[in-house]
Every structure is written in C-alpha cells, then in structure tokens.
C-alpha cells in the first residue's frame, strides 16, 4: 500500500537578486521515505534545503508538510547541517537534549529520550564531555542523536558526512540507517557523493545545474544491508552518475 505524502513541494522557486537558483521545483516525499538529493557542485542543493525549511524566504511556490504550509513552530522538523553545529558550552547530554528543551518536553521524558539515542549512537560513556573534547565523528554523532532525539517527523540532512574519512562515513551511514529504520522518520538527505546516495536511499532525486530543476527521480530497490561491490549497486551508481554528468 502506498503511504501518504509527507512533504509536497510545488513550483518552488528561489532567486538571489537576478540569479535564479531554483526554478519551479516540484516533488513529493512519502511518509517514512529516505530520499537522497544529488546534483552537480554548486547547483543549489543547500539553498534547496534552506528554502524547504524557510530559513531562506522563497521567491514563489508552495511547501506543504502534512498538507499544511511548513511552519517550524508547529511541525517537528530537525536539520543536520554541513558544518559542526554542536553547542560548545553544552555537554554531550545537554546537546542531545537541546531540541527537546526547545520543544518543552518534561525533564523525566527528556532524560529517557536522550538515553535512548545516546545508547544507539554509543555516546553514553561520553555524556559529560564537552564538544572540544570529542573527535569529528563523535561530534557528528552528537548532532545526529540531537536530531533523532526529538523524534522528528521530517529530518533534513545537508552533506553531514562530507568532511569525514571513508571508514567513519560508512560506520555513521550504517548508524543512520539503523536509526531511520527504528524511528520511521522521513529523511531528505543531500549529498554530492553518489555512492552514499545509493547506499542510503529509497529514492534519489537528481538535480540539474543552475537554474536547478529536477532531472529525474530514481527508485532504489536494493535490499539492506547493502554492499557497494554488489553488481546491482554498481549499476545503479553508474546510472545516477550518467544522469548527473553535465560535461
């Protein structure tokens, strides 16, 4: 049975002065879907996500979450940014509980929810550490745990593993899939790494160069756990690479 539409984007357009970045982008995201967005460098992937959350005012178009215009106060949305966004003055535990605090979740419930995600990302032992005492991969885990702790209905991720080495990336990608499967959160994941997109996604949205439109939506039916050397994986990766080529 087809699940209901979680996010509906219609004719999303964003201009910076005379520069048209997003040109009437329209797509749907199903509830619980893991959607990866790929595109050429500088095509406006981050602008795309920032416009989705209205961190940038959009020029025209409509973004609906659960059939209502997107509202950060009302909708439970979490966003993982490209750069490290842990708060240096908070401990790991306080960082993970930050979103719950903003959402006025009671203390006992907050502790329980934080405990749950700390267990999954394996940071329980480091709960009292400050970000300046952690490695890059641990910081990224804190950020992911913070996002999942709020049990978001929609999780947006903007190249969160872009600065990590390949081994750490694979490990964190597996953790992410585990969290996603456990929580059923709808995820929109932006990456320039095609292999990462094929490894994580259920669907891949391929964007064009600026002014950005959607080139194709590619379905990913590969089973999990996925193997990057599997012929099906390689074939899909090649297909997406061909689509993304602009040269």
């Amino acid at each position: 049975m087809e699940s209901k539409v979680k996010v509906k984007v219609t004719d999303l357009t964003k201009c910076f002065g005379d520069l048209l970045v997003l040109d009437k982008v329209s797509f749907d995201v199903r509830e619980g879907e893991f959607l990866c967005v790929v595109g050429p460098t500088g095509c406006g992937k981050t602008t795309f996500l920032n416009s989705l959350t209205k961190l940038y005012d959009i020029t025209s178009g409509e973004i609906l979450v659960n059939g209502e215009s997107v509202d950060l106060m009302r909708h439970n949305i979490a966003y993982i940014f490209q750069e490290n966004s842990t708060m240096p003055w908070l401990t790991v535990e306080q960082n993970v509980g930050f979103g719950l605090g903003v959402k006025r979740v009671s203390d006992p419930q907050r502790r329980e929810m934080v405990e749950d995600v700390l267990d999954i990302v394996g940071l329980g032992k480091f709960r009292d550490y400050y970000p300046n005492q952690l490695s890059m991969s641990m910081l990224q885990r804190v950020v992911i745990a913070r996002a999942f702790a709020t049990r978001p209905e929609l999780l947006l991720m903007d190249e969160p593993y872009g600065q990590l080495d390949i081994e750490l990336r694979f490990r964190l990608e597996d953790e992410l899939v585990k969290l996603w499967e456990k929580t059923g959160t709808t995820v929109i994941f932006i990456t320039h790494n095609i292999e990462e997109a094929v490894y994580l996604s259920e669907n891949i949205l391929v964007l064009t160069n600026k002014p950005t439109t959607i080139k194709k939506r590619v379905e990913n039916r590969l089973g999990r756990p996925r193997n990057i050397a599997d012929p099906g994986f390689v074939a899909l990766r090649n297909q997406v690479t061909e689509l993304i080529k602009w040269w």
Partner: peptide, 21 residues
C-alpha cells in the same frame, strides 16, 4: 554562529529563546 541559530530555529525556537539559549 548562524548555524547554531538555524538549529534552534528549525527546532521551533522564537527570537527571545534564541537570544537566551
């Protein structure tokens, strides 16, 4: 940092909450 404000904003924080937190 803008990114810290964005984190708070996407979690639904208002202007004064962003100032204090």
């Amino acid at each position: 940092k803008a990114v810290h404000l964005w984190v708070a904003r996407t979690f639904g924080a208002g202007n004064l909450e962003m100032l204090f937190k």
